[in-house]
C-alpha cells in the first residue's frame, strides 16, 4: 500500500503542476474530459479487473448522471449540488434494477444484458423529448455551484476534477487492497471457491456494480455542468465500448493500468486529428495491434518489455 500512496502523491503533484503551468484553455478541456473518463474507468476496473464482470452499458450510467443533473437544474431550478445527489440516487436505482437480475448471468450473457440496457437508456434520452430535449440535446445547464462559489472557467473545473479523481482513486485503491478487494479477486478466479469460503458472491458483485455505476453517474453529473450542454450522442453504445476498451487496453488487472488506458485512449483521438479523415482508421489499427501484441494491456505489457530489456 505504501507504494500506492507514493504513486498517488506523484500523480497528484504532476496533475497540480500541469494545472498551474498550463495556460491553454483547449488543453484544459481535453484534460477535463480525460479525468472524467478516468473516474468512470476506476469503477469499471474494479468491476471488470477485480470482480471479473463485464459491463457494456456504462455510458448509460454516465448519461443518467448527466441527464438527471441537467434536467433538475435547467428545467426545475434545483441547485447543482442537490441535483448531483439526486442523480446519484437515480443512477443507483437504475443500477439496482438492472444489476440484481443481470449479475446472475455469466460471461457473454451479462455483457449482452448491460449492452441492451445501455441502448434502451440511449433511446429514452433520444425520444423522451419533453424532458431531455431529444436528439438536439439539453441546453441551459447552469455551471456548478458549491457553497457560493461558481465554477466558470475550464481551469477551475480542472482543479475540482483532479480533486475528485484523487479522492476516488484513493478510496478505490483502499478497497482493492482490503479484504473486500481480495474477495473480489477470488471471485474473478473462481466463483465456486469464493462461495465455499463463505462469501455471498451475489452481494459482492452487486456492491461493486453499484459502486462503478455511482462513479460513472458522478462523472456524468460533473460533465453536464462543465459542458453546460448534453446530447444523446455522448452516451451511445460506442461510448460504453470506449470505457471498456480503456480498461482492457490499459490492463484489466490493475487500477493504474485502467487509468493509463483512459489517458492513452482519451489523448489518442486528439493527436490523431492531424491525420483528418484517416484518424478512425489509425485508431482502429492501433487498438487491434495493442491487443494482439500486449493482450494483458499496456501497463503490464510495457512493464514486462522494460524488465526484459533490463535483464538482457
Amino acid at each position: 500500500m505504501k507504494k500506492q500512496y507514493l504513486a498517488l502523491i506523484i500523480l497528484g503533484g504532476f496533475l497540480l503542476a500541469t494545472g498551474f503551468i498550463n495556460r491553454n484553455d483547449y488543453y484544459f478541456n481535453v484534460l477535463n474530459i480525460l479525468i472524467l473518463n478516468g473516474l468512470v474507468v476506476i469503477g469499471l476496473s474494479l468491476l471488470m479487473g477485480y470482480a471479473g464482470q463485464v459491463s457494456l452499458g456504462h455510458a448509460a450510467f454516465y448519461g443518467l448522471g448527466a441527464y438527471t443533473s441537467g434536467i433538475l437544474t435547467a428545467k426545475y431550478g434545483l441547485s447543482p449540488l442537490a441535483a448531483l445527489l439526486a442523480a446519484q440516487g437515480v443512477t443507483l436505482i437504475a443500477a439496482l434494477l438492472i444489476g440484481i437480475p443481470a449479475l446472475r448471468l455469466k460471461g457473454h450473457y451479462l455483457a449482452m444484458a448491460t449492452l441492451g440496457f445501455g441502448i434502451i437508456v440511449y433511446v429514452v434520452f433520444k425520444e423522451l423529448i419533453s424532458l431531455t430535449g431529444g436528439p438536439s440535446g439539453l441546453v441551459g445547464i447552469p455551471p456548478l455551484q458549491v457553497a457560493g462559489f461558481t465554477f466558470l472557467e475550464s481551469k477551475q473545473y480542472y482543479f475540482l476534477f483532479v480533486g475528485v479523481l484523487l479522492v476516488s482513486l484513493l478510496l478505490a485503491l483502499h478497497l482493492a487492497h482490503s479484504p473486500f478487494g481480495r474477495a473480489l479477486l477470488a471471485l474473478h478466479d473462481s466463483e465456486a471457491a469464493t462461495m465455499a469460503l463463505g462469501y455471498d458472491t451475489g452481494r459482492l458483485k452487486l456492491i461493486v456494480f453499484l459502486l462503478s455505476a455511482a462513479l460513472a453517474g458522478l462523472a456524468g453529473s460533473l460533465y453536464a455542468h462543465f459542458a453546460m450542454f448534453i446530447s444523446p450522442m455522448s452516451f451511445t453504445f460506442i461510448h460504453s465500448v470506449k470505457f471498456v476498451t480503456m480498461v482492457v487496453v490499459g490492463g484489466v488487472a490493475s487500477l493504474w493500468g485502467a487509468l493509463l488506458g483512459a489517458v492513452v485512449l482519451s489523448l489518442l483521438p486528439e493527436v490523431l486529428t492531424v491525420f483528418e479523415d484517416y484518424d478512425v482508421l489509425i485508431f482502429g489499427t492501433i487498438l487491434v495491434v495493442i491487443m494482439i501484441f500486449l493482450p494483458e494491456g499496456l501497463f503490464k505489457g510495457l512493464g514486462n518489455l522494460f524488465l526484459k530489456h533490463k535483464k538482457t
Binding site: V241, V244, T245, V248, V249, V280, L281, F283, G284, T285, L287, V288, M291, I292
Partner: peptide, 9 residues
C-alpha cells in the same frame, strides 16, 4: 476488444 477495433477499422 480486437473485434471491436476491427469493426472501427
Amino acid at each position: 476488444i480486437i473485434t471491436i477495433g476491427l469493426s472501427i477499422l
